[in-house]
Write a protein that binds this DNA or RNA. Structure first.
Length: 564
RNA sequence: CUCCCCGUAGUUCAACGGAUAGAACGAGGGACUUCUAAUCCCUAAAUCGAGGUUCGAUUCCUCGCGGGGAGACCA
């Protein structure tokens, strides 16, 4: 409905960045738009005049019997009242659609790189952000019909492995690694960086060991394979717990063979030059510091591999967009990658590929400082999930839900995990998150358990109703009922917004608003005991709301539970 | 020194250039014989500062201030 009106205005008056939204106040109708202001600025005309045009175009091109009233308010707002019949029709559309908001298959492929842990370091809350944001983005893209390539770009190459090899040779403990590889690697990593402070020559040793690894040294190669295998196994467990999946886990090492060719490409294109023994790409024209493609000892860097990577991705998948769901701190790196890719002719207007850094703020410790894996600080994922599920367990047991053991376990898992995910996804991804146990473990108010609880309550009503009658809108109730229909009608445009901005918190916020409205609704308006016709309408309303909540939660990677 | 992100109730966050700046937690008050009180209803409480652009600025621009991050041989 919102999309239809937006389309009409766009077709008649121009494709600009205005919006049609639900009015905040019933005095301003059901819907309102700022189109007149936006278009007036472009056409250098007066908003009031354009508003008149908007009104007449809407009247002419919308389905018949759609508007009750279209009002123009100084200095150019357009407020729309829909007819009962238009609202009923929309309601019918929502109820009869197989999955409300889902769109048909599209041809575009979009690569989403997310999670991307380093095998020499344990995952921490920072990786968690990338993983859940990326997962939510990829889910939404697929729901909207795009081909999403879920890519876990494993950090399995680079000087860090030289360092790890040095550390292992000096202090490594085989049995410890076998017991808990990620913890053991983490400890070695921390130890190395501690020792470097007093023995700076270790850094050089690390670089040498990495160079040996790059050149194919057998012993280092063997160690590296062992480290990688052990880590991947642990990662798989984590992803399983999180309920996250990928299409590919191709990591940095995959591009090892292509690095010479990539460097060649840069040299031939005339964008790489020698400097102090290293090879650098000058990016002055982009206002960026130069990027290093090859170290003075001949070793390669993250930058080199990412260039090879973007080249490969474009050739292999012909994507329309490549999303890098990576923390804010790497902004400079991606600016350099994107600039270089453009210089090499991989991307650009006419190529049809848009690389996008979907960046997000850091997770800061409770004291507001960065978690540093070099110093071994930070909160582990297990610790977080553990605390969260423990609390869910405690609350559920106290509630005497009568759930069977097996079901209880599943609900505990869904609630515990959901709370952690939602805590992250409900916030604008740009801002830093100050890690806060109290907030993360808040199962009230704006939280995943609130949404899950709302869903469970709605399902409970539906269960008690036994049968959901076919929708008969002849008496769609007044304001509280129609307000919810209109809220449901907003869902598709929310998804569009998530796609355009890659901000899943718009969806989280929408679900919260919807849940609040429907909660308030059934608190005040009887469903089961309403007169038979109204009961039918309301049951359908409850059903549609429940389904939309479930769809939205699923897109966020959060499970909806039937009872809790 | 340069660049990037952020700055909104006591706290943690919303507000896609729009109309009266919304929530949650916390504080105070109220609602379970009635579809699960992880709920609902009510009250108090905020835009870092100074300029500018605009019919209209929390939002855009400039300059400050404060916090976080990044700045060639890590990723």
């Amino acid at each position: 409905m919102i999309k239809i009106l937006t389309e009409i205005i766009k077709r008649q008056l121009g494709d600009s960045d205005f919006d049609v939204r639900i009015s905040e106040n019933p005095e301003r109708g059901h819907l309102s738009t700022n189109a007149a202001f936006v278009l007036a600025k472009e056409k250098k005309s007066s908003p009031m005049k354009i508003a008149e045009e908007v009104r007449s175009h809407l009247r002419k091109h919308a389905p018949t019997d759609f508007f009750e009233k279209i009002e123009i308010v100084e200095p150019g707002f357009v407020n729309i009242w829909l007819t009962d019949s238009a609202i009923k029709k929309e309601f019918r559309k929502i109820v009869t659609s197989k999955k409300w908001g889902k769109e048909g298959k599209k041809k575009e492929t979009i690569i989403v790189e997310y999670s991307a842990p380093n095998i020499a370091k344990p995952m921490h809350v920072g990786h968690l952000r990338s993983t859940i944001i990326g997962d939510a983005v990829a889910n939404t893209l697929e729901f909207l019909g795009y081909q999403a390539v879920r890519w876990n770009y494993i950090g399995d190459w680079g000087t860090q492995f030289g360092k790890l090899i040095v550390a292992y040779k000096l202090w490594g403990d085989k049995t410890k690694i076998k017991e808990d590889p990620l913890r053991a690697f983490g400890e070695l990593y921390v130890k190395f960086h501690e020792e470097v402070k007093t023995h700076p020559e270790l850094d050089k040793d690390g670089q040498e060991e990495f160079l040996k690894l790059e050149k194919g040294n057998k012993e280092n190669r063997k160690l590296w394979i062992w480290f990688k295998k052990a880590s991947l196994k642990e990662f798989a467990k984590v992803y399983d717990k999180l309920g996250v999946r990928f299409n590919t886990q191709i990591g940095e090492s995959f591009f090892e063979k292509e690095l010479d060719a990539t460097i060649d490409l840069m040299v031939k294109a005339g964008i790489a030059k020698e400097s102090e023994g290293a090879l650098i790409v000058d990016l002055d024209d982009f206002g960026l510091p130069p990027a290093m493609a090859r170290k003075s000892d001949g070793g390669t860097l993250y930058f080199t591999r990412d260039i090879a990577n973007i080249h490969y991705r474009i050739k292999e998948y012909k994507p329309s967009e490549i999303l890098y769901v990576v923390a804010n701190e790497q902004t400079l790196h991606f600016s350099q990658i994107f600039a270089t890719a453009q210089l090499l002719g991989f991307t650009g207007e006419e190529k049809g590929v848009k690389p996008i850094h979907v960046k997000f703020g850091l997770v800061l410790g409770e004291e507001g400082k960065k978690f540093s894996s070099r110093e071994g600080r930070g909160i582990g994922l297990d610790e977080m999930l553990g605390a969260s599920t423990d609390l869910a367990q405690k609350i559920l047991e106290a509630r005497k839900t009568g759930l069977k053991k097996k079901e209880l376990k599943e609900v505990v898992k869904a609630v515990g995990l959901g709370a952690v995910k939602y805590n992250d996804l409900s916030q604008n991804r740009m801002s830093d998150i100050v890690f806060n146990w109290e907030k993360m473990l808040s199962f009230e108010g704006n939280s995943a358990p609130y949404l899950q609880y709302t869903y469970a309550r709605l399902k409970s009503i539906l269960r008690k109703a036994k049968r959901i009658p076919k929708l008969d809108t002849s008496i769609l109730g007044e304001s509280p009922d129609t307000a919810i229909v209109i809220k449901l009608a907003e869902f598709p445009s929310v998804l569009t917004r998530v796609k355009e901005s890659y901000m899943p918190h718009y969806l989280a916020n929408y679900l919260y608003e919807l849940a609040k409205e429907i909660n308030s609704f059934y608190q005040n308006e009887p469903v089961l005991s309403a007169s038979s016709k109204l009961r039918g309408v309301r049951l359908n309303l409850v059903k549609a709301s429940a389904e939309t909540l479930k769809t939205g939660l699923t897109l966020l990677g959060i499970e909806a539970v039937e009872r809790m």
